[in-house]
């Protein structure tokens, strides 16, 4: 549409070209970044999740909501290679080989993917950070794992990322345990995003934080998703968080998807009885 060109008109500074050129890539993309087909996982006789299928497009944030026990964390584990599903396919559009079923990848290949193109943000930063290693070391580790060797450059990248997640770069040599919960969470995000991943899995990334800290983190995540063209699968039980962060929603109950759609459509005009109950149960402030 010509209007898109018009809106970017008059921009000629070099550093801005990158931001402007990221848009067509999102809009013109004809292939999903992640295609999930009939993923299922049982724990003995109990269903973890079943019949899960969806596509995730580049630059899109997909929220997965439901009560605890609805299977959303199981699903996230299956997608990110932390759990082994009993069946189904998880096709990821790799940079060099196109769509590959990550469930049938060799372990070294999957580990490489997890260190480069994927990010995983845990609810508890302690699960995603190395608590005995400095903040700079936490961020730099992922770069070293992908072959970076130049100490000065690694430290520079780490410092740059601490700045992006609003951590004072003067604290680059401090251990994460000296940080507040909100800072630890931002450090975990920096550690994950330093390699420029295309897909982030997030498990309740704002859970356990004070509301004021939550707001700052939400704003940070929104900016990163927009600027990096990052796609994300975001698991949370917090409908206010998905309203602000997710483009699209999947509602899960008893391990199954009961409803999907545009985020504000699912929240404002829920079709399934369970979603209606979920939406009407939120406390108004």
């Amino acid at each position: 549409m010509s209007l898109l060109d018009a809106s970017g008109g008059g921009i000629c500074h070099k550093e801005e070209v990158h931001a402007s050129s990221s848009l067509p890539k999102h809009l013109d993309s004809d292939s999903p970044l992640l295609s999930v087909r009939s993923v299922a996982k049982r724990y003995g006789a109990r269903i973890g999740c079943k019949d899960i299928s969806f596509d995730l497009w580049p630059g899109e944030v997909l929220g997965v909501v439901g009560e605890s026990g609805s299977g959303k964390s199981t699903l996230l584990g299956c997608l990110s290679g932390q759990l082994r599903p009993d069946g189904g396919e998880v096709l990821f559009d790799t940079r060099d080989r196109g769509p590959v079923d990550t469930l049938r990848m060799s372990e070294p290949q999957r580990r490489h993917l997890a260190r480069t193109d994927w990010a995983f943000v845990h609810q508890n930063p302690r699960d995603g950070l190395r608590m005995g290693v400095s903040a700079g070391g936490n961020v730099g580790e992922r770069l070293m794992a992908t072959g970076a060797r130049h100490y000065g450059r690694i430290r520079e990248a780490a410092s740059d990322w601490l700045d992006r997640v609003e951590i004072d770069t003067g604290r680059i040599d401090d251990r994460p345990r000296q940080f507040s919960g909100g800072m630890q969470q931002r450090l975990q995000i920096a550690r994950n995003l330093v390699s420029g991943p295309r897909l982030a899995f997030m498990d309740e990334p704002t859970g356990g934080l004070d509301v004021s800290v939550q707001a700052r983190l939400l704003d940070l995540l929104r900016g990163l998703v927009r600027d990096m063209g990052l796609s994300a699968v975001l698991v949370t039980h917090d409908l206010a968080v998905v309203r602000l962060l997710a483009d699209r929603l999947i509602v899960m109950k008893d391990g199954r998807v009961v409803e999907t759609g545009l985020t504000d459509q699912v929240l404002d005009d829920p079709q399934h009885g369970y979603t209606q109950l979920l939406v009407s149960s939120v406390l108004q402030v």
Binding site: S7, A215, R226
Partner: peptide, 22 residues
């Protein structure tokens, strides 16, 4: 409906940022 604590000027600029405007 906005993310709390985001400055007003950012709230208004956001639709342009989403379009890739610097």
């Amino acid at each position: 409906r906005v993310v709390p604590r985001v400055p007003t000027v950012r709230v208004v600029a956001e639709p342009l940022l989403a379009l890739g405007v610097a």
